[in-house]
């Protein structure tokens, strides 16, 4: 991800140290060179992700979430055009984001609140900010919301190509 702050990188390196120290080093180097995760060589410790077309930029209206699924049909998500650039946003305006909508607490489906651009869980009231990389605003989940890495091609087709956290309800993001 572009714009990762140092704290994030440190945490990532720390978690991966031991099993995949060399890999983490490579990922950090890639980030320093300004490459995005999607283009970096997949780490052997991570599963390999399909490149799935989700929609075309022309299909999206600002602040109207589109239902998607990634990396397979059993993993529901949303694709949202925010209308203003955000960290980790894709597309020419860096304003397109996609997230899993299975709450990483207990897997209840999140609902989008357009008024404040948050995903909300009816299970135990967790909230995630889609403008802040899925950061948990408040809640019971022990991770921020899994975000789908996006690539947009010359025709405006939007592809999902990776996930940055474990999706609820699976012990491997690829089943």
């Amino acid at each position: 991800m572009k714009g990762c702050n140092n704290l994030v990188d440190v945490g990532r390196r720390q978690f991966l140290r031991g099993g995949g120290a060399a890999v983490a080093g490579a990922a950090a180097a890639a980030a320093a060179l300004g490459r995005t995760e999607a283009k970096a060589a997949p780490a052997p410790a991570r599963v390999s992700y399909p490149s799935n077309r989700l929609a075309n930029v022309a299909d999206l209206k600002v602040n109207e979430p589109v239902d998607i699924a990634y990396p397979d049909a059993d993993s529901p998500g949303v694709l949202i055009k925010l209308g203003q650039a955000v960290d980790g946003g894709a597309g020419p305006h860096r304003d397109i984001v996609a997230f899993s909508i299975l709450c990483p607490h207990k897997g209840f489906p999140l609902a989008y609140a357009a008024a404040d651009r948050s995903l909300n869980c009816p299970g135990h009231y967790s909230r995630f900010d889609v403008e802040k990389g899925g950061q948990q605003i408040w809640g019971q989940a022990t991770q921020n919301l899994p975000q789908f890495a996006l690539r947009i091609d010359g025709k405006g087709d939007i592809f999902a190509e990776g996930v940055d956290e474990l999706i609820y309800g699976r012990l491997s993001n690829r089943l």
Binding site: F15, D129, D164, S172
Partner: peptide, 13 residues
């Protein structure tokens, strides 16, 4: 960006 672990697979007990 929000902190992410980049862990996408866990061992099975």
């Amino acid at each position: 960006m929000a902190f992410k672990r980049y862990v996408d697979r866990l061992p099975i007990p």
